[in-house]
Design a protein around this nucleic acid. Structure first.
Lengths: 217, 217, 217, 217
DNA sequence: GATGAATGAGATTTCATTCAT
DNA sequence: TATGAATGAAATCTCATTCAT
């Protein structure tokens, strides 16, 4: 893979040693994943991090800010990765594969974090999702741009709009992650790799045996 | 459309007149959609319904039960509709179109209800989603069965498993609804109909211009 | 026995037939005994009586009034019985025995009612006990009068004041009932009769083997 | 007196200074005594202690736990004292006197606490009394053991069983306290001392002038 | 930096009581 | 009489946040 899913930019700007701020963020991922953001008390985070819960307020203004931080940290990595992928000379299909691959690997690497991001942010229409709407959108836009270019150079059909294609593509990914999050789908190295392929295959290849049927409706 | 999205079975089992229970359920949809389940107080529901909030507890054991009721009512309609669609003599692609159509029309008819169901239940991995997991799964299974039969009769390629195809299909739909819910996508009669077509076109037709590239991975 | 413990004066003033008021009172005894006055809802009484709970408010102004009625009904019977006993030509010891006997038989006849009266009224210093203080006192006064006369005629020693003797006597009875109420003491015909004798024996006979030791302190 | 009634073991295990936990317990005694456990809100306790009511939940899991703590603290002192008294070389009558003395002095020292314990626990057959049944029983058992030994060595008559004698003895004490609690009996140094003597005199000496009448029944 | 005692707004839920039918 | 839908005051308990140490 071009980009590793475990890039942790926050660590770079912080001194080595017992970084309590990082400790708290990592603990928050576990705690939020386990109980959900609302049901998770600040003291649950602190317990998980083995620090006094007053310390959480030393590093973060509020419980919300902890989640905001987790989301932005990770989402910015995603945006960077997509941008980087798009910069390479690759067929659109391979770019989409690389993106799916990065997200699936993100889940493989830290399932709790992806669970929190999806459940508590990207689908939370009344709270964090609304707050971070623009940031979330950027990802769709980058994917749409990839599709758009592919349609322009003829490698993708123009049957659907680029924005819609991006939506469907990302939706398929999120749905697969949701399947894992809910224990509805088996997890494992093989499953992860198969999922990447299937996502791209479904969205790019389509289900129809006979493409003639793929007339615009 | 074969099946109307506004079937309301509960109404049939209740006497006519000022059905306060229905009134409360409908008010809950609005209140939950507006503020989210957690941020919504029982008194918000009561205010919306113009009843004393004690009455909510006369008809429902708890705030949870209100959401459970809303979800089950609607999801059972969905399951019935999918079953009905599958029973008809139609190409698989048309069945999928009918399903996408029903869900999109459900949103068109009552966007708040669909918002609540998606945001508070089908994606709420730590609360209601977990509770209703089996019920949610049934829908995927019904869709997967449609794909499976189509693959057996050769109308669909076997590039991906039926379960996976169902996931991607439903994921695309939910993502489109999420786009509307977040005001990221324009809404309107045209957009709704286009979405139905695009969902099916993407999943069935695929993005690739050249199907040769659609080799199994 | 001189006086039967199951006199029910309320019944006399009411018409025969399906006396719902009586039904509710009897149901209240069961309900209060089972859950305690506070934990018992008005609907529990109604359920026990098999009537709608609105009816409770047709016959009684409040939940409190139901308990008040139960207590007064029974306590007035007790006062009447003690008065009647005192009127007879009997040794004081036998009078005390008759009183203990009546109360124990009351418990034998309707343990729930006595439980409610003791637990919810005669020991409830902050609620009903305070309300009915004067009525409760009358019983002690009647007993004290018996002791006083016995001391005057020399059949009882004057080692303690009559009021105190009455208190100790009634306290012993209530404690025995409490033992039954809590399932700390075995219940049964034999135990009931033995209790009557033991109460009188303890209070009148004393524990000391050597009465010489019974000097005033 | 051998044992002081104001032993406060909890204080020993806590640091000096403004012990808020103790403060809350002491305030709870006042508040429970004043309004009764049920009518007393947690905020009444907090007000009485001059702390925010959230602090009550910092130290105790629930309002129930506050009462449980108060009861157990005091009852364990009682059990210790009775055990200690029994260990001494004393006539049974003097042991009973010492016990009555301790309990009466407990009331003299902290009437509110004894009121709460009797009204809300030892007589509360449907709530705390049931919970602490075994603990309450231990006191009766210790008293019964004293009587039993006295019967064995001939200093007490065997007219009644030890268990019954213990019940009557404790019942007389509780009834006297109840008299004070209800303001039915005058309180004062003289009355307290007289009560101790009267309780023992009644139970041990008996009321009968002529012991000949004290035949076993 | 680090701790956790202290605060108090705010949520759910219960249930006595009223009242239209 | 009899019913039970409707009301809403009030109570417990939770937990984010502050702050003295």
């Amino acid at each position: 893979m071009t980009s590793s899913p475990d890039t942790e930019p926050a660590r770079a700007t912080r001194p080595a040693g017992p970084d309590k701020r990082r400790l708290i963020l990592d603990a928050a991922v576990v705690a939020f994943a386990q109980r959900g953001f609302h049901a998770c008390r600040v003291s649950d985070i602190a317990d998980e991090a083995n620090v006094a819960y007053g310390l959480v307020y030393h590093y973060f203004r509020s419980k919300d800010e902890v989640l905001d931080t987790l989301f932005l940290e990770r989402w910015n990595v995603l945006l960077g990765v997509i941008t980087e992928i798009d910069r390479q000379e690759l067929p659109a299909r391979d770019k989409l594969y690389a993106i799916a691959s990065f997200i699936v690997d993100s889940y493989r690497h830290d399932p709790n974090l992806m669970k929190v991001i999806i459940v508590e942010v990207t689908r939370a229409a009344n709270s964090f999702g609304r707050t971070h709407l623009e940031t979330i959108r950027e990802a769709y836009a980058l994917i749409a741009a990839i599709v758009e270019k592919a349609q322009a150079d003829g490698s993708f059909r123009a049957a659907v709009t680029p924005g819609f294609a991006a939506l469907a593509f990302y939706g398929a990914i999120e749905q697969v992650l949701t399947g894992w999050i809910f224990d509805m789908l088996p997890r494992g190295e093989e499953e992860f790799d198969q999922a990447k392929a299937f996502i791209v295959e479904t969205i790019c290849g389509g289900l129809d045996a006979d493409r003639a049927s793929a007339r615009a409706v």
